[in-house]
Write a protein that binds this DNA or RNA. Structure first.
Lengths: 155, 155
DNA sequence: TGATATATATCGTAGTACGATATATATATG
DNA sequence: CATATATATATCGTACTACGATATATATCA
């Protein structure tokens, strides 16, 4: 007993708002692109930079193992191994075969790795000063039209 | 007995908050990872999906040319050409050598492309229902500590 | 002890963005 | 109007890296 209008008071708008969705992805890409360039300027590969950040910024309750880091980077454990190979070859991290569990490998930042990460983090924080709000806006635009049910809105 | 405590009321915190920075990137990766898997489930390559979205969601004042799309995807124009090659081979887009400028190529979605994009967009919108707020929170956490100066500010 | 699970490592492969370069069309300039 | 130059796409070979499949080492359980 209801007509399917476009979008007015339905549960979830049937037609997605492509424009806001596209804008969100565009802004995300811009930020990621900035990040990659910043990394290369700092003489480190973007994915290696992300590894360093994931390592240093790991929540305290997590152990810095290959597997955990892989999860944080959303890559397969074997890919993480290869990444660590390149990282240690470049002198950014060290492997520490310690722990109770002899299978695990704990990753540790070297001074060099720490330095690059520090520099890059400051740069990123500065960039986010402007990019952040833009991202927020794009995200909110998507969420606004995505809202599943919302009648009696006041706006 | 040192005063380089955490951060309290400085201009811009000298030490970046690695944890919130890392968390932001983690959440971005989770969303992108979801997106990639969703695309593959829909039988399309993630980058091809992004192209379709960028095309359909292009602001009205922009013409859907290779160059413009390349900019929106943050890739080189020649990479965009190759992407379009794969897209048209797969039947998702068509080239339209029209326009006043004979050098340009205008991209057009096929019905097939439209269909996949529609499906994926709904899926993404649904995902963002939960992922969106998490991203927002992560972003805000970074911005909070990144705020450069905050005296006599208006919020 | 033996069986099985888990963590890391190795290796070959495939996919793709890139730089360098080529071609086509447009525009400027004499 | 002919030529020079700029711009938009296109082509081609290369390099990088994440991946699947598999191997090895250690842990855990029966």
């Amino acid at each position: 007993m209801s007509r399917d209008d476009i979008n007015s008071s339905k549960k979830a708008t049937p037609q997605p708002d492509y424009q806001s969705l596209a804008e969100l992805r565009y802004q995300i890409r811009r930020f990621l692109h900035f990040s990659e360039q910043a990394a290369r300027q700092a003489r480190i590969e973007p994915n290696q930079h992300q590894f360093l950040l994931a390592l240093k910024g790991l929540p305290e309750n997590m152990r810095p193992t290959i597997g955990i880091l892989a999860g944080r980077l959303q890559i397969r454990p074997n890919s993480a191994v290869e990444l660590v190979n390149r990282l240690s070859k470049a002198g950014f991290v060290k492997r520490r075969r310690d722990s109770d569990d002899g299978r695990e490998v704990l990753l540790v930042l070297t001074a060099k790795g720490e330095a690059v990460l520090h520099e890059l983090s400051l740069h990123h924080r500065a960039e986010l000063q402007t990019a952040g709000p833009v991202l927020m806006a794009a995200l909110q635009a998507v969420l606004k039209q995505a809202r599943p049910k919302l009648n009696s809105g006041k706006t």
